[in-house]
């Protein structure tokens, strides 16, 4: 906390914090207000006498109703959910094993392999989608959820591996040694001791991976083409922007509904999540 006179607290704490919070939350407010604003207000010229962009007097749910009835939004939600969960599960599983191996097992070139995995994470998706598109076509996976379930791990596995590697390193190795003396073979020590202790780290990796897949845009845009296969980010932007016509109300309703699962996941696990990023384990 800031010490000293009250004005110091205002200048160095309350004012900056307020500015920060307002600038961060304003886009969300804009999203909500646009969603519930009727079209007649939405497309009113700014020179009109009753122009009021920051609030509405006649809130409506018609955009949400249109979104759910006129578009395939619920299908997109389902697609995104299935793809995100599957990609996260695959990546967490691989990341757990790889992270454990790289942080705990002694084998030749462990450091080199760790770095190599990290480097793959640095290759931009905007380049990687070109060779991946070729692979997807060869395996005839285009325009199916598998195209994304199998390509998202290309960036999620390195991410999970590195995050978990760091977390495993913070767990005292005596815990595991003790378990091995207690009669647990290595895999049992891993499953009964290390993984439960690493739950904050595992949850963090899972939340991150889920969010990254939920929001992913470019692979979804390139690998999926038919409307009923699309994910929320691609579906909303491609189906609700027709030529130069923007269906702002529906677009914002889609953005709002699409962000709810992520917000839900974060708020549910926020405590674990924070300790996963910052904390370590005390014996």
């Amino acid at each position: 906390m800031i010490e000293g006179a009250p004005w110091r607290r205002w200048v160095f704490f309350y004012v900056p914090v307020t500015a920060f919070v307002v600038s961060l939350l304003f886009p969300f407010y804009w999203m909500v207000i646009t969603t519930i604003r009727p079209d007649s207000e939405l497309y009113r010229p700014w020179s009109a006498a009753n122009y009021a962009p920051f609030w509405t007097t006649r809130p409506t749910l018609e955009h949400i109703r249109d979104l759910l009835s006129e578009t395939l939004f619920s299908t997109w939600m389902l697609n995104t959910m299935i793809i995100s969960l599957a990609a996260t599960a695959i990546s967490l599983f691989c990341g757990l094993l790889a992270g454990y191996a790289l942080s705990r097992l002694k084998f030749p070139y462990a450091g080199l392999i760790g770095t190599a995995i990290f480097i793959t994470y640095l290759v931009p998706q905007t380049l990687l989608f070109i060779p991946l598109a070729d692979i997807i076509r060869n395996f005839k996976l285009g325009d199916s959820p598998w195209a994304l379930i199998l390509t998202y791990p290309t960036f999620l596995i390195p991410f999970c591996t590195w995050l978990l590697m760091g977390y495993f390193k913070s767990i005292p190795k005596e815990l595991e040694e003790c378990a091995r003396i207690d009669g647990a073979p290595r895999w049992k020590a891993m499953v009964y001791i290390i993984f439960p202790v690493a739950i904050p780290g595992i949850l963090s990796a899972g939340i991150f991976a889920f969010t990254l897949s939920w929001n992913e845009f470019i692979y979804a845009l390139v690998f999926l083409s038919s409307p009923e296969q699309k994910t929320v980010p691609v579906g909303v932007t491609s189906e609700l922007v027709r030529g130069d016509v923007f269906y702002w109300g529906e677009l914002m309703a889609g953005a709002l509904l699409g962000s709810i699962p992520v917000a839900f996941v974060y708020s549910f696990f926020v405590e674990y999540y924070v300790s996963g990023i910052t904390g370590s384990v005390k014996g």
């Binding site: 005292p172 005596e174 003790c178 378990a179």
Partner: peptide, 20 residues
């Protein structure tokens, strides 16, 4: 022989209790 088959018990400096 792996540690588990040596029929020994060890007490560590940091105790290494399973925190969960």
């Amino acid at each position: 022989l792996p540690p588990m088959d040596r029929d020994i018990a060890m007490v560590f400096q940091n105790y290494a209790l399973y925190p969960h």
